[in-house]
């Protein structure tokens, strides 16, 4: 039980970073932490005590296996997260090019 709560704590740490920090890179790191917290949570949902990898072969019997569905979900979210983070990092680099700073309080051409 505690371990699931720790995932949520990690999620909240990431949320704090993404919402409260002023530096673009720190915001991105916050997003990454959040994503990993969710991934960790997903993997832990599918874990069983003494479970083994769910690989089916003709000469083996798999009795006590971990849930493979969440693992494939995590694979998908990792790829999605990679695309997202790279997009955000590229935008941050371009923002630095235009504004010369990573501080979001100084990046304010849009108002209202």
């Amino acid at each position: 039980m505690e371990i699931y709560l720790l995932c949520l704590v990690l999620f909240c740490v990431g949320l704090y970073g993404a919402v409260r920090k002023r530096n673009l890179i720190k915001i991105i790191i916050g997003l990454v932490i959040m994503e990993y917290a969710v991934n960790l949570f997903l993997v832990l949902i599918g874990y069983r005590l003494q479970g083994r990898a769910p690989i089916l072969a003709s000469d083996q019997q798999v009795l006590n296996m971990v849930d493979p569905l969440v693992q494939s979900m995590v694979m998908t979210t990792i790829v999605i997260g990679l695309a997202l983070i790279m997009l955000v990092v590229a935008i941050a680099v371009r923002i630095y090019e235009k504004y010369g700073t990573f501080d979001i309080t100084k990046i304010r051409k849009l108002r209202g």
Partner: peptide, 9 residues
């Protein structure tokens, strides 16, 4: 792409 960005910078 990121390497080129930073090189342009």
């Amino acid at each position: 792409a990121l390497a080129l960005f930073t090189a342009e910078n």
